[in-house]
Design a protein around this nucleic acid. Structure first.
Lengths: 235, 235
DNA sequence: AAAATTTGTTAGACTAGTCTAACTTTAATA
DNA sequence: TATTAAAGTTAGACTAGTCTAACAAATTTT
């Protein structure tokens, strides 16, 4: 049985493994992610290593073991199912679900999660467009690019967000964006990558920082049809 | 903000205040309820007193302050709403809901509970027949007797259970009993209070220990009609 | 390659919550 | 009422998780 804290460390390590392609993380990086000091992370890493959940040597890089990864995915599954429940069933707004799901993901009951999954009719994606791992821990990987990578003149469709913070999500709504919205990139400045986009007929200027947190694919890929590749979805 | 542990102490104190009419509890009693040693309870009581949640003097009796009681009722509200959700929405069985609700009751989000309450259509009773406090903390008190108090020859209707343990609830089902079932008391032994009852045409022998955990009223009271008082519901 | 910077670890301390063992107060009983 | 029993408290210790400050290793820069 894992403590809430241990679960949070595993989840953070899984997240970091997705972010950096090497699947490895550093102590400082991990600590920053969990809002603790590096010294604290070191202590916990020793404990997680002892429990066979992480591969770790002093001063070395950190990665999850198979067992650790399975546990981490299970937590992510719970988190995303709860987010879906809060959004779809209880009518929470987009920006409210994350912090409550952070608590709910630690509830220990396999039956609860399976029943919830069934009740929600086995959703594949959470309200932020992230894939929900199935009962076996399989995660549907989607090819996607960030809006920042889309060239001027190209069109795309929003499929997910990278940042789940309240402030970011509220800003997304303010700009008129949302999951499954079509976006046309009108212009893009060479100097600072400031983009002008059009969504539902409304034009907005968005910074690179913002655009990097919006995931998109071409409208065909989004609809499950063969990729037109006008924006190279699958690269 | 209260810790899970503090919340559990408050909840236990509220429970004890309902059980003994004096509204006061002892340290050992409290400790036994929480499955900790009396020494541990003493430490926590000092802390809860410091926070203004309990009235307590060394070697004296313990009671909740108004603030402590409000918090405790809020936790009970959460617990019972979650039980209702698990039972009605997720189709958990009667005996499974309690232990998961013990975890869910500690989730911190007023919005979550209000949305859940709305989703469940403002239920008044949980799956065990216990009243669910409303948003203001008001608890509907029901006049009820235990089955052990019903004389031979009398009829009554089951409205709640006192014991929420798995083993008890499973036994209740096995005997053919359940909420809102009509019970006829056929015989009652003078010596050991062993009762013979009839439920849905099936006869069973039940011990006093068992009968004391079944709450009943007359069928009129159960249906919201004027009490016939053949079993003195309101005494 | 040496120096400087970044990254990570160790040591010691703190809090929350728990325990055991010894002790004190209150209540019951002979 | 004096004694015994029950109830409750204190003291000291332990674990999990956190911190700060000092130190060590690895990496980058000059």
């Amino acid at each position: 049985m894992l403590s809430h804290t241990e679960e949070n460390y595993l989840k953070a390590l899984l997240k970091l493994s997705f972010e950096s392609k090497s699947e490895e993380a550093g102590t400082n990086e991990l600590a920053a992610n969990l809002a603790v000091k590096p010294a604290t992370a070191t202590d916990m890493l020793k404990k997680l290593k002892e429990k066979g959940l992480v591969d770790y040597e002093k001063y070395g890089k950190i990665s999850l073991t198979a067992v650790g990864k399975t546990s981490a995915i299970d937590i992510v599954r719970k988190h995303r199912l709860w987010e879906t429940f809060l959004y779809s069933t209880l009518e929470f707004t987009w920006d409210e679900v994350h912090e409550v799901a952070e608590q709910l993901e630690h509830i220990q009951s396999a039956k609860l999660i399976d029943k919830l999954d069934k009740f929600l009719n086995y959703p594949q994606f959470d309200p932020h467009g992230d894939p929900i791992p199935n009962q076996k821990g399989e995660i549907k990987t989607q090819f996607k690019k960030t809006l920042a990578e889309i060239a001027a003149g190209k069109a795309c469709r929003m499929v997910a967000v990278k940042d789940n913070s309240k402030s970011f999500l509220q800003y997304v709504v303010k700009v008129g964006l949302g999951l499954h919205h079509d976006i046309k990139v009108l212009t893009r400045q060479e100097y600072d990558a400031l983009m002008e986009i059009k969504v539902n007929g409304i034009k907005s200027s968005i910074t690179q920082k913002f655009a990097e947190n919006i995931y998109v694919v071409c409208s065909n890929c989004a609809a499950g049809k063969p990729c037109t590749e006008t924006i190279d979805c699958k690269q």
